[in-house]
Design a protein around this nucleic acid. Structure first.
Lengths: 396, 396
DNA sequence: ACATGTTAGTTCAATGCGTGAACGAAACGG
DNA sequence: CCGTTTCGTTCACGCATTGAACTAACATGT
């Protein structure tokens, strides 16, 4: 019963403008003439709207194309340097801040190493704020040119007024108001979400999920999570914690999981559980190469992993009927690169024919670096929806 | 990446009108003055819009209320006899056709018994068409007063142009074009969906799900299904087959399921599987009372059922973070009435704290009769969205 | 009986938006 | 240089919401 908002004539413009911007952003350079077909708007409207967007410098011309026998069409595109986006990846071992232009080309980046158990929220906030200054300087961009900062963090991000609260057990964060801390140090708009979700968003917009309206993006690292996309929108749930796929029980009295329960999917297909099952010593530090060895050696543990993963994916297919499933995360990619075909077979055996046939299962394209990019996407999304002009926050 | 449609000024009206109609439909009688606050629209707009709706007879006045010291406010409400809706429940043993007024008060009903293995699609279509005539006669309503016919059927309803196709194994239906058959016999608009989904829709709109934006409605009969609601919208998936919860694998090498696989939830908590596990002879015909005896006697089978159901619900909570879970279906209600508290405990043990605390688990209110009502709701939804005037289809 | 105040609802000019039709611009071919 | 074709712009029009002015319908006090 999602209540629609009151609408007025100006919302019409806002919506159509956003649609035009989106088609131009994702649909490459286009002439005004082509845009009438793509958007359904009349030539008159396209003309006035592109006029506005050109004088605002959100769009720019991009050459001409001969059209046999008539006036050549002028191509338009989104101006990649109209504004910039900042994406932040807060992970267990580092804080990374990246500066992107509007086309998501990376312009600058800075990494800060976090010592284990140095996840003090104040420290992290200081690192982020310092990082912002650094990338702005490196990229020769002023704060006034930046649309906002997106931050991907571990754990559950509880969105709500007045402020998003972050719960991250492994960091010792329990209801931490990162947004408020940021706002104390910068006037840029701040968007915060779970890192797995921002990565899912990145895959959906720029990776293997492009164009999918119904998708599930599965992230397998040492933990396991998922982003569910229905009708083109990420499903967030009532307190923004949807997507905790890792603690789905798939075996009634199965292996103990670090969450305290038993039989969780994560205990089987998460890197930590997988390595433990394969008998890799816990003190191993280079998990990726250890995992590579286990996967290459094969054996029952690997077969089991394929079975569990395939079954878990089959459950998602039955329940959500996506058109595409993306397998990502560093461990997910390693497993998928070696065994995707077998996984597909297991999925086929454990899902209903009709939804199975409607789904394709593919690997993620972007890799683990995409957390920051996905975080920046939060800002981009806002911009494409509202195409808010630059800007009100540039004050301080 | 759900593409927004081109919008024009007239769409603004359509949207606002729909919103007004919805607030009045669900928010009881209201004065124009109250509506300005509830909708956010200006008094001027409310005035003109209610004026239109009154002359169209979609709204009617509903008495006055003194307002201390000033002009009394005139209450407005949706006119329940402005139009009627027809809902159809196609089940294994019967075809039921019901006539409702706009407020979902039942005006007439007719049942046709289906002999097992007489699920010929032509026969079913004839029954429905005959039933429509009967309820119209009984209810003294003309076809021109009916907004449309909603039909809830078993199996998967593949929506798509030009026609919805129905796949129902148990009926021997494989890609059956029920919509086309209906259109050959009536000019009324026809809406078709899975019966479990229509029932979920009924619970969501008129039952225990009222007002929930994020909910899962779980239906346990002899089979097991679910309706997922995210942001107030049912999640349908890419081919409208989302919600096949019953065949979620919850035990890797568990009981065989009638779907051919093993370890499906349905094999444990579906009525058929439950009775089989309790050792009830397969030829028993009165399943409900047999189930009642099993549940009342208690014992390990019941405990196990509670565990499986609770775990299954916990998985849903982790994955989808709903604000409410409804347990329905005749078997679900029987289990829930006796063991809901224990189920809640199991759910708590198997789900993450944060999403668990955000959820309430309740029983459905409407019972198994709600399939037809939910089907009629499909028509109502269309009407509230478009408030399409009566009508274009009244031709023949 | 009548003036006054209060609340509810309506009317109207102003503003904004998309559209179709008329118009202008920029190429090509001969 | 001219006709044709295609691309893009301009402008009057219809339709939407809105704030402000206005009317309607009551209670209260004198």
């Amino acid at each position: 019963m999602a209540r629609p908002e009151r609408k007025t004539v100006r919302d019409v413009r806002k919506g159509n403008r956003g649609m035009l911007l989106r088609t131009l952003y994702f649909g490459g350079p286009r002439s005004r003439h082509e845009l009438t077909g793509l958007t359904g708007l009349s030539a008159a409207t396209i003309s006035t709207m592109t006029g506005d967007l050109l004088t605002e410098k959100i769009l720019m011309e991009a050459g001409q194309v001969d059209s046999d026998g008539g006036r050549p069409r002028v191509l338009l595109r989104v101006n990649p340097v109209y504004a910039y986006l900042i994406g932040v990846d807060v992970a267990e071992t580092h804080v990374r801040v990246e500066l992107f232009d509007l086309e998501m080309t990376e312009k600058a980046r800075v990494d800060y190493t976090l010592r284990p158990s140095h996840h003090d929220i104040e420290l992290v906030a200081r690192r982020i704020l310092a990082g912002i200054d650094v990338v702005l300087a490196d990229g020769q961009v002023t704060a006034a040119q930046v649309l906002g900062v997106g931050i991907g963090v571990p754990g559950i991000v509880e969105r709500g007024a007045p402020d998003a609260l972050i719960h991250a057990k492994t960091f010792g964060w329990d209801g931490v108001p990162l947004g408020a801390l940021m706002r104390a140090g910068t006037t840029l708009p701040v968007f915060i979400d779970n890192g797995a979700k921002t990565m899912g968003q990145a895959e959906l917009w720029f990776g293997a999920g492009r164009g999918a309206d119904h998708a599930v993006i599965v992230l397998i690292g040492s933990g396991v999570g998922a982003t569910v996309v229905a009708d083109g929108q990420a499903v967030r749930g009532t307190s923004n914690s949807a997507g905790e796929w890792g603690h789905t029980k798939i075996e009634m009295n199965g292996r103990p999981c670090r969450c305290g329960s038993r039989g969780c999917l994560e205990a089987y297909i998460g890197a930590e559980g997988l390595l433990a099952r394969a008998g890799v010593p816990v003190q191993t530090t280079d998990w990726p190469s250890a995992l590579g060895r286990v996967l290459d050696d094969g054996g029952p543990v690997v077969d089991e992993t394929v079975t569990y993963l395939g079954t878990g994916l089959a459950n998602l297919i039955n329940m959500l009927n996506p058109e595409r499933i993306l397998v990502g995360g560093w461990a997910g990619l390693m497993i998928g690169e070696r065994h995707l075909d077998q996984i597909r077979v297991v999925v086929g055996e454990n899902s209903l024919t009709q939804p199975y046939n409607a789904t394709s299962i593919v690997l993620g394209e972007l890799g683990p670096d995409a957390v920051a990019m996905g975080a920046a996407t939060l800002v981009l999304e806002e911009f494409l929806d509202t195409s808010a002009p630059l800007r009100l926050h540039a004050a301080s």
